[in-house]
């Protein structure tokens, strides 16, 4: 089954990104496909390469990158929401790409399920 995942919140302030990551890992472990993870609202902040959490804490951005590397997951950051918050190509972490909101609607159309994580 193809899942699309929408992440509404940035890392650390809310558990949303951590929950979404755990969901994605469990889904691929069960043999499902993550069609796309779309980052919207403050969720775009998951994609900054400038974050440096303390070494004894998890690095949410790196966890997303690892998911993308290991399972070829498409991580898409909304261009409009990103521009509003200063997430652009210049500080985008590798493994993420910036595209339009249409990518979210498209994911809703083509994935079998869309699961949202937010505040």
């Amino acid at each position: 089954m193809k899942f699309a995942v929408l992440v509404n919140e940035g890392p650390y302030n809310h558990q949303a990104a951590d929950s979404a990551l755990q969901f994605c890992k469990a889904a691929v472990d069960k043999g499902h496909e993550i069609f796309r993870v779309f980052f919207y609202y403050d969720g775009v902040n998951n994609a900054t390469k400038l974050g440096e959490p303390p070494s004894d804490d998890r690095n949410v951005t790196r966890n997303w990158q690892k998911l993308a590397e290991d399972h070829k997951v498409d991580l898409v950051v909304c261009v409009a929401a990103g521009l509003r918050r200063g997430i652009t190509e210049s500080n985008l972490a590798p493994g993420f790409r910036i595209s339009g909101l249409g990518q979210l609607i498209e994911a809703g159309i083509h994935a079998d399920r869309l699961v949202t994580f937010g505040d």
């Binding site: 409009a80 249409g102 979210l104 609607i105």
Partner: peptide
């Protein structure tokens, strides 16, 4: 919060997909 505004932006984009 920003949600109402950014939902509206999503809604407008969805109009292009004939859903």
């Amino acid at each position: 919060t920003v949600y109402a505004l950014e939902v509206l932006e999503m809604v407008l984009i969805s109009a292009a997909f004939d859903q």
